[in-house]
Write a protein that binds this DNA or RNA. Structure first.
Length: 419
RNA sequence: GUGGGUAUAGCUCAGUUGGUUAGAGCGCAAGAUUGUGGCUCUUGAGGCCGUGGGUUCGAAUCCCAUUACUCACCCCA
C-alpha cells in the first residue's frame, strides 16, 4: 500500500512530462492569442455547487464524486469537472461587470470515482475554456475555433469534430416527447439499459452501440428537425462561420452529452486511436447554467478537454516523446583542491543561466565522462591539479569531440556564446 | 457497479510432465596499466515468483480466495 498510488491515479514525470509541458505551453499561447485569460479556482468546492451545476440526475453527481465533510461540518467535493467552479467565480467575483464577454481558460485536476480504463482515470486533468455573456453563434464559433486551433498546433490530426444542436429547453422538451412517442412502439426491442434510459434520459438511447437499438433508431426523429426557428438559425449561422474558417465538421444528430446543462450547440472532437474513450474534447452551450447557480440569466459556451487523452492521441501519431535531457556542460573534477574551484565555477555558470552538472558520486574521470554522455551534456570539462596550476581547462564538445583550452575565467563567457 | 485478460529483477520477457541455488536481453554499478564518453569485453548489485490460504515429501508451476494492473460495458474528458 505504501508503494502503490491510489487506484486510477498517475505520476507525471520523465518523457510524459516533456509532452505535458509542451501541451501546456501550446495551450497558454493559443488562449492568449484568442484573448482568454487563465483562472485557477480551488480544487474543492461546496458539494451543492456541483449538484446544481452538473445536474442531480447525472452519473457524475449520483455516484462518482469524491465528497467528504470537513472539520467544520461543511460538505465538500473534489471538483469532478472544471465548469462549475469557474461559473461560481464568475458570479462571486462579479466578472459580469467587466467588459463582456468574459473569456476564461483553466487547466485543472478533476476527480471522479470510476473504474479506470484506457483514457479514464480517477484523477485526471482538464483543459477548458468558458465564454460568458454572448448568446450569439459567433461565440460558439470562437470556442470551437480555439479547440480546433489547439489540436492543430499539438499536431493532433487524427480527430473528427462532431457537432449537433439540442435546441433550447423548449425544443429539448418537445424533442424528448417526440422521441419517447416514437420509441414507445418498439420499446420491447431495446436493450435493457436503453429500456431504463427510456424513462431516465431518452436522449442517451441515441448513442447506444447495441445493434438492435440502432435498428430501432434508424428512422428516429432527430433533434435538429425539432428546433424552433431561432435555434435553427443559430445552428445554421454557426455552421456558416465554421465553413468560413475552413474548420471541418460532421453534423452528427446522434451526439448527446451526459451533462445536464447543455442547450443548443453540443460538440465533440473524437479520436479513433485511443480506445473506447475516444472523446478528446467535448463542450457546448449552456445558457441556463448561470441562472441555475443563482446568477442573473447569462448565456455561455465552453468546452473541456482531457489532457491525458490529448497526450494519448499525440502519442498515437508521434510515439512517446523520448527526448533525452540536455545540459549545456558537465564540469567534472579530480582532487580536493579542484573540487572547491569547480563548485565555485558551477555556481557561477548557473547564475549565468547555463545548465551545469558536476560530480556528486565521487566517481573516476572515466565514469564522470560516461555520466556526462548519459545526461546529454553538450560540452564537458575536467578540472584537476594540472588545470589549476596552468589555469587552463580543456572544454570538449561532446558531439564533434573538438577541444579548446580556456582560462577558468573565460569559461562562463564561452558557454554563453555557445549556448 | 458488471464482465474478460494479466501478475516472475528497474524495463521487456523465458521458466519443461510440480523437483534442489529462479534465468536472458536491456538498464544500473565497478573494471579492461597513468586523468576523458558513445563500440566491445569482464564482473557485480538487484527477486517474499502480487498477497493469503490449500493440495503435495516437494509449488513460480495445480486449486481457492484476495488485491493490483489492464481492456470492455456503463459513463465521460
Amino acid at each position: 500500500m505504501l508503494t502503490n498510488a491510489p487506484r486510477g491515479t498517475k505520476d507525471i514525470y520523465g518523457s510524459y512530462m516533456n509532452t505535458w509541458k509542451k501541451l501546456e505551453d501550446t495551450v497558454n499561447e493559443i488562449c492568449t492569442n484568442f484573448g482568454f485569460n487563465e483562472i485557477r479556482t480551488p480544487i474543492f468546492e461546496h458539494t451543492e455547487l456541483f449538484q446544481r451545476g452538473v445536474g442531480e440526475t447525472t452519473d457524475i453527481v449520483q455516484k462518482e464524486m469524491y465528497s467528504f465533510t470537513d472539520k467544520g461540518d461543511r460538505n465538500i467535493t473534489l471538483k469532478p469537472e472544471g465548469t462549475a467552479g469557474v461559473v461560481r467565480a464568475y458570479l462571486e467575483r462579479k466578472m459580469y461587470a467587466d467588459a463582456q464577454p468574459t473569456k476564461l481558460f483553466y487547466i485543472t485536476p478533476a476527480f471522479r470515482y470510476e473504474r479506470p480504463q484506457a483514457g479514464r482515470y480517477r484523477q485526471f486533468h482538464q483543459f477548458g475554456v468558458e465564454l460568458f455573456g454572448s448568446d450569439k453563434p459567433s461565440a460558439d464559433a470562437e470556442v470551437i475555433a480555439l479547440a480546433a486551433n489547439m489540436l492543430k498546433n499539438l499536431g493532433i490530426t487524427n480527430v473528427e469534430l462532431h457537432i449537433n444542436s439540442l435546441g433550447g429547453p423548449e425544443c429539448r422538451k418537445k424533442y424528448n416527447n417526440t422521441l419517447k412517442e416514437f420509441l414507445s412502439k418498439n420499446i420491447d426491442s431495446l436493450c435493457p439499459t436503453c429500456m431504463e434510459r427510456y424513462e431516465k434520459n431518452p436522449l442517451r438511447i441515441l448513442d447506444c452501440k447495441n445493434e438492435k437499438c440502432q435498428a430501432v433508431l434508424k428512422d428516429a426523429p432527430l433533434a435538429k428537425d425539432e428546433l424552433d426557428t431561432e435555434c435553427k438559425e443559430h445552428f445554421e449561422e454557426l455552421l456558416r462561420l465554421l465553413d468560413a474558417m475552413e474548420i471541418q465538421y460532421v453534423v452528427d444528430p446522434w451526439i448527446v452529452r451526459g451533462l445536464d446543462y447543455y442547450t443548443r450547440t453540443v460538440f465533440e472532437f473524437i479520436s479513433k486511436d485511443i480506445g473506447a474513450q475516444g472523446t478528446v474534447c467535448g463542450g457546448g452551450r449552456y445558457d441556463k447554467l448561470i441562472e441555475e447557480c443563482g446568477g442573473s440569466p447569462t448565456p455561455a459556451v465552453g468546452f473541456g478537454a482531457g489532457i491525458e487523452r490529448l497526450i494519448m492521441t499525440m502519442e498515437a501519431i508521434n510515439g512517446s516523446n523520448e527526448d533525452k535531457p540536455t545540459r549545456d556542460i558537465y564540469l567534472g573534477y579530480v582532487g580536493e583542491n579542484a573540487k572547491k574551484t569547480t563548485f565555485a565555477l558551477v555556481n557561477e555558470l548557473r547564475n549565468n543561466n547555463i545548465s551545469v552538472e558536476t560530480d556528486l558520486m565521487s566517481r573516476s574521470v572515466k565514469a564522470q565522462m560516461k555520466y556526462a554522455n548519459k545526461i546529454g551534456a553538450r560540452y564537458s570539462a575536467i578540472i584537476g591539479d594540472n588545470e589549476l596550476e596552468e589555469n587552463s581547462v580543456r572544454i570538449k564538445n561532446m558531439e564533434t569531440r573538438e577541444q579548446i583550452d580556456l582560462n577558468i575565467e573565460e569559461i562562463a563567457k564561452y558557454m554563453k556564446e555557445n549556448k
